[in-house]
Design a protein around this nucleic acid. Structure first.
Length: 273
DNA sequence: ATACTCCCCTGAGAGC
DNA sequence: TGCTCTCAGGGGAGTA
């Protein structure tokens, strides 16, 4: 669920809540969340380590510890809570700190994944970060996108969701970016002009920045922290607005399936060319 | 390399 | 009430 703006919001919340805390115990109730080692080893490795920083790359959270790194991908429903009273059957991992505080990983659909790496490894050269493309903010100009798009046969909506090409964009923001750039989501990426690539890149940066500023989008159950709603859902132009009039032109927002994902767009503002 | 299809999970809401 | 179906901010494996 969470995309770059939501993960960034979670990162900021985490940084306030767990920075410099020392882990004294880790309970893993659902082992498959731990992707690259056993739950036992995971707990053992984390014990007695202090959280020195919380970083982010794309949709991955990176807990920097004194002897290693903990990577966390929230996928669709992953979230972090800080109150032991909120423990329920969907709380899969609990970190206990030396000051008596806790960090709970909660994930209704159990899609989220965590990875532990020793400090010696360069995590950016290691799966799963290895294949991540640059974030829109790191891309200087549309020319760079244009060149990447030349090499694919996919439509722009699928390309925006491909983390290898650009990292951080998910289904909500992909639709919003296409709308802002006035590009039909089924347009083949290799047919986009350099000017459109420039527009698309700028739209990506603007929308993601604005969303971060607003604390992300709170749709359905998702919250950056328990009881904390984002505000960007109020700014959404097409996502979650199927069959409603377009806020710009009044035509009805359409919803179709692209690559198995629901895709909303305005058939008038985003005419195919 | 790319296109499919299916899978991992649970819950909400629609339709009957 | 209860069943069945579809859908959901993601990503990966297996197969042609």
């Amino acid at each position: 669920m969470p995309e770059l703006p939501e993960v960034e919001t979670v990162r900021q919340v985490l940084k306030r809540q767990v920075l410099n805390k020392k882990i004294i115990k880790v309970d893993v109730f659902y082992e498959k969340i731990i992707a690259n080692c056993s739950a036992n080893e995971f707990s053992l490795q984390l014990m007695n380590q202090t959280i020195l920083d919380v970083q982010r790359k794309g949709k991955f959270l990176i807990f920097v510890l004194d002897h290693g790194y903990l990577l966390s991908h929230l996928r669709m429903e992953g979230k972090y809570w800080f109150d032991l009273n909120l423990l329920d059957k969907h709380a899969h991992i609990v970190f206990y700190f030396s000051d008596g505080k806790v960090l709970i990983y909660h994930d209704t659909r159990k899609f989220g994944r965590m990875y532990y790496f020793q400090k010696e490894v360069d995590i950016h050269q290691q799966y799963p970060l290895l294949n991540l493309g640059m974030e829109p903010f790191e891309i200087q100009n549309g020319q760079i996108l244009f060149e990447k798009f030349m090499k694919t046969k996919k439509c722009i909506k699928e390309v925006l969701l491909d983390q290898k090409i650009m990292a951080g964009i998910g289904n909500i923001y992909a639709d919003e970016i296409c709308f802002k750039a006035k590009i039909h989501p089924l347009t083949l990426a290799n047919k986009l002009t350099k000017k459109q690539c420039e527009t698309l890149l700028n739209a990506s940066k603007e929308i993601l920045m604005k969303a971060i500023k607003e604390g992300g989008s709170t749709i359905k159950t998702y919250q950056s922290a328990h009881g904390v709603d984002g505000k960007f859902q109020n700014e959404l132009m097409v996502y979650n607005h199927a069959n409603e009039p377009c806020k710009i032109c009044g035509h009805s927002i359409k919803k179709i399936k692209i690559g198995g994902r629901g895709s909303s767009y305005c058939p008038y503002c985003q005419r195919k060319r």
